[in-house]
Structure formats: structure tokens, C-alpha cells
Design a protein around this nucleic acid. Structure first.
Length: 584
DNA sequence: GCCGTTTTCGGCCCGACTGTTTTCAGTCG
């Protein structure tokens, strides 16, 4: 667990403790502080180092008491009052809370009556049927907890957005086809383009909600029904994910979409803002007393509240509302802005298709240029290229660029995805690298290095004057591999100094850089690119997910280098070093 | 515990559904 994760975990456990002890407002305070900490995972410690407690208190939801706790945590690595609390309530409440349907009150009862501290204790108690007799529980609760625990044990974490979005789109299409449905949409983390998805939130509008719900629970994707009512129905899909459907009259679509898009914290802040102005906001509209003020479109609700409308990707419940109030929302990079893909693998190494086929597919996806970036020789198991083969590949690229025009094939750049070796040296010699149009480097081996060694390794590599881009900087794979440990601030400073772009790798389970890194990179003045890391022709569609990550990181078009035309990109690159092999 | 163009004290988002209740507490989004 990283330092920040630990801090977030502690704040969350305080929140559970307070909620269990009938202090809902304290609980909320801790929870929103935990939220703020996770939003500032990347720059919290930097902020603390620079400005101390005073700086922390500037953040939303962090006042004197919590700022002092965070200060103590960074100074000493622990928090005295947390230890005291844990002595009284030595329960892994954060982990227990991840079970569907188990909240603070029940966690506390489990501890008081049965001394249940963690998931294993709970499993044991369930096996011996001890839960049903507890006050506030019953046979149904016992069975539900057993199911939740089983599901938790079976699940391997939240799936990446890229795998779930197509399913959400399919469900929306099913709903839209129902005769009783006027409109349908997905909301939630999917609409906000969060990198992973916990469940699928759906909205439909209809005058016959009960019929719609009845049709919904019989969709082929549905495994079982968890809750079913006339306005809200929750089902579990065969893939293990939950889908939550709200059905409302068509005229309140905007209010419901706003509510169901979230984030939860964003909604809370909006509703508080409404209250201060004498309004109430719910999923049916913005009201003054019983009078309906706005409900048809999201934008009119924001306008009534004196706000510009933040795009869904920014709705985390933090700075976006301040920016919305001061007409300072960023002009986010529009979807479809990327003009060229700068990381593509072909069948020269581990890609499935030829350079020619990939260039055609890129063009079909409306890209006008594409860098061929096959792996290098350190990756023996996929026959990474040696210097001589790299040179030979250049000749093939020249040939194809002469043979085809932009009408049918993307313009090809000769590039590489050169391995950064364990000691920070590169897997191709400088003569070969300097002859390339585009040089990307990345880490594929010795991923487990300590942060100091990994940072040194990366800094050394990025200092090479031939390097243009650092591909998938943390090398994480969602659900399979943690990000490499490194000092991201130092990596950013190095990238800035040597004018190396950092990549947003849009392959769904990579999503690397993530949104927080993107924001830090932009603040640090580091150029970015968005690549699909395509290994087959149908991977170019991933670029859309990369654009989503960039938008969540508040990126505008000027922050992303491959939104430039090829001519502009070339001019930008040549400021660093001449490109001898460039084929215009 | 946090917060302030009503406020430094007294508020704190809101509705739906389930289960264990006999009018509501707990949980969720």
C-alpha cells in the first residue's frame, strides 16, 4: 500500500468509526477528507512539504483537526489518535465496508456481539450461522452477506473502463429499442470516464416504468435480480457486474442524468449549493419550495445555480465547482482530436498485422500519421529487433510511404519502443536511435526495483538526447500488476528538462499515465501524447479512452503533441534534434 | 469535523429499496 493509500485508509476507518458511534457529520467530514486525499494523491505530500498545515487546510474538507493528523502522519509515519481508536475498535472496517450491504452500524454490531474483526472472522461466523440471530440482522441478511463475501472472493477488482463501455453501450441500445422507452443513457463512472468501473448506471425515460423494469430484468445479460422497484432496479449481470437502472418521466431527463452521473461528492456539493440559495435539488429537478425551476437539461440546472457546466469527466466534487463558478473551466481536448498514433506494434515483433495493414487501419480510424514502434532485442521472447533489423525496417517504411498516399494509408514514421535496461542504458545504440523519426522508451523488465533505483534508471534513460517519449511510464496493468515505484515529481522534472513527452497509453488495462499524473504533468509543463499501443488493427479505437484520461486530467488540445498536424509535429521535434530519416 | 455573501454556532444532500420492523433503521448511489 502506498503512503497516500494508507492515509486514505486511515481517514476512511475514522469515518466508519464515527458513523458507528452515531456521529454522522463527523463521519462525513472524514469521508470527504479521504476523498480529497485521493484526489490529491500525487501532490499532497509536495503541498505539505511546501506549505505545511496551512497548505493542507486550503484543501476542501480539510480543517484544523484533520490537517494536524495529516501533518503528524507525514512527519512521523503514524497518527496517535488512530492508534487509540484502533485499540478500542481493532476492526478492519475499510475492508469489511467493501462488502455490498455492510455499513458502519452493522460492522460495529458484528464486533460488539461476535468480535468479528475482518473478512475471515466474518466467513467463520457465516459458516456457523451465527449472524442471523444478531439484532438488526436476520436470515436474509445472513444469506446476503454470504453472497457478498463469495462474490468478493471471486472478483479480481474493478474492471477497466475499456472492457465495460461496450457492454454499457449494448444495454443502452437494448433499452432504447423497448417500445415503452423514450430515451436511455448510461451515467456514473462510465460517463465520467473513470479508469475502472464498479457498476453500470443506466437511465431510461418512460411513462410505463413497471413494464420497462419487467423487460430489463429479462435481458439476456442479466443473471439475477437484487432489487426491483418501479423507479429503481438493480441486477447482477453474467459478467459479475451490477447494473442499476432508474426509470423517470422524459421531462426530467436532465435532472436524472445529472444525479446519476455523479460523482457522489459532486452531487453533495451541488445540493448544498442549492440549499444555500433556498432551493432543493434531487433527481427530479431543481425546486424552490414545490415549484419546479429546472429539470429538462443538465445545463439549465447548473446555470440556475450560478455555474458553468463542468464536462462529466471533471465531476469529482472538488476544484471543478470553483472553476465552474468563476467561468474558469478548461477548454478540454475534444474527443477525436488525436491526429496520429505514436505507438504501434506490427508483426515485426508482437503485433498481429503487417506495417501496411496497420497503416491502412490507422487511416480507416481517421488518423493521418502513425509511428511504427516495434520492441527491441532485450525482449527476446518476442524477437525484439536488433540494430540491423531496425535499419532494415526503415527501408520497408520508406518503400510503403512512397507506394501509398494519405488517401488510403496513414503516413508512417520510423520509430521504436526501445527498452530501458536495468541500469538505465538503452537497448539500441545511439547511432541507430539518432537515425529514427521518433524514439520511445519504456520499462518491461526488473519492474520491482525500489523507487530510488527505478527513478535513477528512468532519469538516466530520459537524459539521452535521442529520446522523444517515455511510453506507459508506470508500466502498471490494471488488475494484474501494480505501477512501478518511482518519484513521479523527479521523472516529470527530468522530462521537462530534456523535453521528453510522457505518454498516455490508452490500452484499457494500462491507462498509463492516469488522470492525476496527467494533471501533474500539465502543471509541470511536460508535453504529453496519447497513443493506442495498438497490437492489432482494431486497437486504434482505444485512442478514445486515452482522450478520456486526458480530459479527466484537465488537458486541452495544446497539451497533447499528437493533436498537431504532421508538419507541426515535425517542427516541434526538430527543435530537439534533426530527423535525418524523415519522409515528408 | 468542516464551514461561512444568512452564520465563528448551528447547520450539515436526498430519495429508493430492503429487511426487520410494527413505523423505521441501515445502506446505497
Amino acid at each position: 500500500m502506498s503512503t497516500i493509500d494508507m492515509l486514505q485508509h486511515i481517514l476512511f476507518e475514522f469515518s466508519v468509526y464515527e458513523a458507528a458511534h452515531n456521529a454522522p457529520y463527523k463521519a462525513r467530514a472524514y469521508q470527504s477528507a479521504a476523498e480529497t486525499v485521493s484526489q490529491h494523491a500525487d501532490d499532497l505530500e509536495t503541498l505539505w512539504k511546501a506549505q505545511g498545515i496551512k497548505g493542507l487546510k486550503e484543501l476542501p474538507g480539510i480543517g484544523t483537526a484533520i490537517a494536524e493528523k495529516i501533518d503528524e502522519f507525514f512527519r512521523t509515519g503514524r497518527i496517535a489518535s488512530y492508534r487509540t481508536m484502533k485499540q478500542a475498535f481493532p476492526v478492519d472496517s475499510a475492508r469489511l465496508s467493501t462488502l455490498e450491504g455492510l455499513g458502519p452500524k452493522h460492522i460495529f454490531t458484528l464486533w460488539q456481539k461476535l468480535k468479528i474483526k475482518n473478512l475471515s472472522d466474518l466467513e467463520h461466523a457465516l459458516q456457523h450461522k451465527k449472524i442471523a440471530q444478531l439484532p438488526g440482522f436476520g436470515e436474509a441478511s445472513q444469506a446476503r452477506l454470504a453472497r457478498a463475501l463469495h462474490l468478493k472472493r471471486a472478483a479480481s477488482g474493478r474492471p477497466a473502463l475499456g472492457f465495460i463501455l461496450p457492454i454499457a453501450e449494448e444495454l443502452v441500445a437494448h433499452l432504447t429499442r423497448l417500445p415503452d422507452v423514450t430515451r436511455s443513457a448510461y451515467g456514473g463512472s462510465i460517463r465520467r470516464r473513470q479508469e475502472t468501473v464498479g457498476d453500470i448506471d443506466l437511465i431510461a425515460t418512460s411513462n410505463h416504468p413497471i413494464r420497462v423494469m419487467e423487460a430489463f430484468v429479462h435481458f439476456p445479460e442479466v443473471d439475477s435480480v437484487i432489487e426491483q422497484g418501479p423507479t429503481r432496479t438493480l441486477v447482477r449481470l453474467h459478467n459479475g457486474l451490477d447494473a442499476d437502472l432508474r426509470v423517470v418521466p422524459d421531462q426530467v431527463f436532465g435532472a436524472t442524468l445529472l444525479y446519476f452521473t455523479g460523482s457522489k461528492q459532486h452531487n453533495i456539493l451541488l445540493r448544498e449549493r442549492a440549499l444555500k440559495r433556498g432551493y432543493t435539488l434531487n433527481e427530479y429537478g431543481l425546486f424552490k419550495g414545490k415549484k419546479l425551476l429546472a429539470c429538462a437539461h443538465e445545463e439549465e440546472i447548473y446555470t440556475r445555480l450560478g455555474l458553468d457546466m463542468p464536462p462529466p469527466e471533471l465531476r469529482v466534487g472538488g476544484e471543478e465547482l470553483l472553476a465552474a463558478e468563476h467561468h474558469a473551466l478548461p477548454d478540454l481536448l475534444p474527443y477525436g482530436s488525436v491526429r496520429g498514433d505514436l505507438q504501434v506494434q506490427t508483426n515485426w515483433t508482437d503485433g498481429s498485422d503487417s506495417i501496411e495493414q496497420m497503416a491502412r487501419a490507422a487511416r480507416t480510424n481517421r488518423l493521418s500519421y502513425m509511428a511504427v514502434t516495434d520492441h527491441t532485442k532485450a525482449l527476446t521472447f518476442i524477437h525484439g529487433l536488433h540494430e540491423r533489423e531496425v535499419t532494415k525496417q526503415g527501408k520497408e517504411i520508406d518503400r510503403l510511404n512512397k507506394k501509398y498516399t494519405i488517401k488510403t494509408h496513414a503516413r508512417l514514421l520510423h520509430g521504436t519502443e526501445c527498452d530501458i535496461l536495468r541500469d538505465g542504458t538503452l537497448d539500441l545504440n545511439n547511432a541507430t536511435l539518432s537515425a529514427l523519426d521518433w524514439v520511445g522508451v519504456s520499462v518491461h523488465t526488473s519492474l520491482e526495483l525500489e523507487a530510488t533505483d527505478m527513478t535513477k534508471r528512468i532519469v538516466k534513460a530520459l537524459s539521452n538526447p535521442n529520446i522523444d517519449c517515455f511510453f506507459h511510464p508506470t508500466s502498471r496493468r490494471i488488475g494484474r500488476r501494480e505501477p512501478c515505484a518511482m518519484d513521479m515529481d523527479e521523472v516529470l522534472a527530468t522530462a521537462k528538462k530534456f523535453r521528453v513527452a510522457l505518454e498516455i497509453d490508452a490500452t484499457p488495462d494500462r491507462s498509463d499515465l492516469n488522470d492525476l499524473h496527467v494533471r501533474s504533468a500539465i502543471r509541470a509543463g511536460v508535453p504529453l501524447v496519447i497513443d493506442s499501443d495498438a497490437h492489432s488493427p482494431d486497437h486504434f479505437r482505444f485512442l478514445n479512452f486515452g482522450e478520456g484520461i486526458a480530459r479527466r486530467g484537465w488537458a486541452t488540445k495544446t497539451d497533447i503533441m499528437n493533436t498537431k498536424t504532421l508538419t507541426q509535429l515535425r517542427a516541434w521535434l526538430e527543435k530537439k534534434r534533426p530527423r535525418p530519416q524523415w519522409t515528408a
